[in-house]
Design a protein around this nucleic acid. Structure first.
Lengths: 256, 256
DNA sequence: GATTAGTGTTACCGGAAGTAACGGTAACTC
DNA sequence: GAGTTACCGTTACTTCCGGTAACACTAATC
């Protein structure tokens, strides 16, 4: 049993580390293939079809993903990243309050307009059977809502207002935009700009009312920068641990 | 092929009609069983388990429902009915604008609080595989949103305002409440009343702002009755045709 | 008594998720 | 360059579950 080569004394075996990037890349590649397969065959794709689209066979897929849910979760993560990468600048960049709301709303709508299949897959009954827990859409909404809640809470605190409402407010706003966006995407009976305008107005009215009821009045058209811009903290790591599930080779113990 | 007895000249065969109520009742009975099975085994119940819960075997189930989706759709319909029956009075009954919004929001929250399992099943990744089209949660939201849109549109028209915004507005509001409710149900970090208050405020601010921007001002605390109460029309039939799928006995051509 | 429209059963089919078992290759370590 | 690690990939299976076929019984209507 004397394992001849195990790990070099200083630093660890290079071979172990060497593959991690590769595995990660491979996962992404498979996510790409899944999305392609998804748009090609519809949301009821089989694993065989996905594998075929990736140019491999099923077992290969299963070396990188514990099960179908895991794969779909990764697809969802892709969507989240995509969206957050667009939402982040919209929220962070300078501008009047009104502008910032508008930018955020519009970049959301622009994103779902650009990737409707992915959006539908993620948001609507995405999963097959397994996971009712690991729900991507709900997860995504929570991530966005939390980000927004933090941002909002910071503002409220800066105004010496009760920040307790930030969280429900954020979830409400996210749900609002998501729901309206969903409706819009389905029957595009108005322009994107029209809807963005509209939603921005609603949000602004709500924000304004809320602030007024706290005795604060701000001008939607004046760039506000509280203490040299708000301390915006986004979600910790944009690509979280990612459940690499199986450091070492073929061992994968799926199904909990 | 001479069908001996078919239909009596006047009125039609009684046997045909006799069973319709019965079949309907049976369906409801199975929906009950499904909900029981759902809360017992979680959202991944098998048809066998559902059938067992109902005290029968699978084929019996399949005589009343085309497939699993159809059954789940009926469960969703149950939820919709439940909710709409509570929402309707909240919206229709008299009161100040503020009260009416509050009642509607609060009865929604009360309903999901009372039936959390059903709610979760309907709203979160409800389905197994088949139907991505027939999505109950989306369907329900649309029904509610449409009702609201109609109500709102009538008001806007009564104020001689552009009623084009009613639809996005309704979807936005529904999504907002749904999303905030979802968050609340999960981690009940505030009282229901607190959230209802909060959401009502938000909605009111938005409504008020919208009206003001159209040059109209109304008092949230004065009961408004435009022309002896608004012409509220709810959805056509609360229990729609229901896809009785198969007038005659065993014929069921499932799967499209 | 024939017919209709149900009640129900057991035993099976078929498809798709997931697995076992096998073999090949690149590269790092000694 | 021998040994080892950690991938690449395959074909052929098993398992599970949604759905079906075939068959038998009952109650009311005509």
């Amino acid at each position: 049993m004397g394992r001849a080569v195990k790990r070099s004394p200083d630093g660890g075996d290079a071979r172990r580390e060497r593959w991690r990037a590769h595995r990660e890349a491979r996962r992404e590649e498979f996510v790409d293939a899944t999305i392609r397969a998804l748009t090609k065959h519809g949301p009821e794709v089989g694993m065989d079809e996905i594998a075929a689209e990736a140019g491999v066979t099923k077992p290969v897929l299963y070396r990188h993903f514990a099960d179908k849910s895991d794969l779909y979760l990764a697809v969802g993560q892709r969507g989240t990243d995509l969206l957050m990468n667009r939402l982040k600048p919209a929220l962070v960049d300078d501008g009047t309050p009104y502008e910032r709301i508008y930018r955020a709303v519009d970049s959301y709508l622009a994103t779902i307009e650009e990737f409707p299949e992915l959006y539908h897959f993620v948001v609507r009954r995405s999963f097959t059977d397994k996971p009712v827990e690991t729900d991507i859409a709900t997860e995504d909404k929570r991530i966005i809502a939390n980000t927004l809640a933090r941002l909002l809470g910071d503002y409220l605190r800066a105004f010496d207002m009760d920040s307790g409402g930030a969280e429900p407010w954020a979830h409400a706003a996210v749900g609002m935009v998501q729901s309206a966006g969903d409706w819009w995407l389905e029957r595009q009976s108005m322009t994107r700009q029209g809807l963005s305008d509209y939603l921005t107005k609603i949000i602004w009215f709500a924000v304004d009312g809320l602030l007024r009821s706290g005795g604060i009045t701000i001008d939607p058209q004046t760039p506000l920068s509280l203490e040299a811009n708000p301390p915006l903290r986004l979600v910790p790591g944009k690509t979280p641990p990612a459940k690499t599930q199986g450091e070492t080779g073929d061992d994968r113990r799926a199904r909990g």
